[in-house]
Amino acid sequence: MRSIVKLAAPAAAAALLLAACGTTGGETSSGASSGSSGGSCPEGISIGFFGALTGPDANLGVNINNGVKLAVDQHNAKSGACQVTLTPYDSQGDQNQAQGLAQKAAGNTKLVGIVGPAFSGESKVADKVFADPEVNLVHITPSATNPSLAENGWKTFFRVLGNDATQGPAAAKFITGTLGKQKVYVVDDSSEYGKGLADIVRKDLGAADVKDNTVQKGQTDFSAVVADIRSSGADAVFFGGYYAEAGLLLKQMRDAGLSSDQVAFISDDGAKDDGLITAAGADAANGAYVTCPCLPPDKAEGTFVEDYTKAVGSAPATYSAEGYDAATILLNGISEGKTTRADLLSYVASYDKPGVTKQLKFDDKGEPSSVSVWAYKVDGGKIVADQEINS
């Protein structure tokens, strides 16, 4: 959602994680000592981050982890603070790894809360583990937007941004209303997130949805899809999925002569990353749009942007501020002596304080009380805020 931390490969993602989090090996990485500051501060108390820190979608996870790390460091620097350790659980964005990682987190007796899981697919698997009454591990996602996650009765589930039941209709409205497009070709990447969002967009486009298609995560050849887009007569393409595939599809559309004047390209928050521009090339990416239920960086409250930039060495990126807000909720609970899983869960459920992105308060399903959706545009090689999409 901002100037983006560039991670072109898993090795780069790991390098940034080492720099930002001070990881030296083992299960935990600490921004400060984990010693106790009093009887209500258990030795080595920890919060976790669960999401991709390596792998093809790592940029988004690292952005969040950077925000979480900043919140932990700021908390630990306060006089008399209960020192909290940050424990990363690197899912690589792979839903198949989520079960084992969730069980590992559940068994970590020092861990009282989690920021994440970051993606909807891994959330669907891991959240069941956290919600088990024998585990009772509160988790606040800054980025998993599939609406169904809030419909499972999981009392430990919370998220700090709007879900795709908000983003999907807003994207459809932006495409047909603001952009004036009436023949939209909708593609999804078959993931829990990408297909779920694309299906909502399809429904809200109604008759403007002229044709649908599905591709696969990791697919690189979209020539058949591009040919089908051309033959459909579409004046816009909406892609539901992540930046790697979105960027390649966009590149191959433009290489085939489908210019931005002929066929607009719109994607989602999973594609809101500089990786989209890297995959497509700056010229092809120029003029593309993405939607996101996340706040533009210059609208974050307080000194967050300045503090983040100083700590990380680059401006906040997509979900960084949301990750910071989610971590701050957990850390505020620990500061108020809520140092067991049960106590911290109750604290989060009744939380009502301002964050850097919005007033942070949850309904009985764990959804935020305040949501907004923004359209962003690629302009001059950067993803910049275009406008808030009014509901």
Rank of each mutant, 00 (worst) to 15 (best):
F362P: 01
D386Y: 14
N65Y: 14
S267T: 13
S40G: 13
V160E: 05
G380Q: 04
V312P: 01
A19D: 15
L197Q: 05
D363E: 07
V125G: 09
S223A: 13
G35C: 09
G26Q: 10
C21W: 11
S231L: 08
F239G: 00
P10G: 05
R202Q: 11
G177M: 14
L276V: 04
T214R: 11
S143P: 00
G177R: 10
N108C: 04
I329Q: 02
F174A: 06
V84D: 06
E192Y: 14
E134G: 13
D94T: 07
S260E: 11
T340V: 11
S3E: 12
C292Y: 09
A327S: 04
T178C: 02
V305I: 11
S40K: 13
A317M: 06
H139I: 08
F157W: 14
Q359M: 12
A14G: 05
T23V: 10
P297V: 15
D364S: 13
S79A: 15
A207E: 15
D261C: 00
S260C: 12
N96A: 15
Q167T: 15
V225R: 01
L345D: 03
K69R: 14
Y243L: 09
Y351K: 05
Y376N: 14
V72C: 08
R230G: 01
G270V: 08
Y347R: 09
Q216D: 11
A144V: 03
L249Q: 01
Y347L: 12
S231V: 07
K299D: 11
P56K: 07
S335M: 12
F174G: 03
F49C: 00
V210Q: 02
G381A: 11
L70R: 02
A327E: 06
K338D: 02
A285Q: 03
F50G: 04
V68D: 04
A224R: 12
T166H: 14
Q359F: 06
A11K: 15
V215G: 02
V356R: 08
N146P: 00
Q99W: 08
R341H: 12
A102C: 04
G281F: 08
L70A: 02
F239D: 01
E336M: 10
Y319T: 10
I329Y: 04
G180T: 07
D221S: 05
G38P: 04
A102I: 10
G177Q: 13
V62Q: 11
C21P: 00
F304E: 00
I229Q: 02
D379T: 15
T278E: 14
A106R: 05
Y376H: 13
A19I: 03
W374H: 11
I114G: 03
G337A: 06
M253R: 00
Y308S: 09
G31I: 04
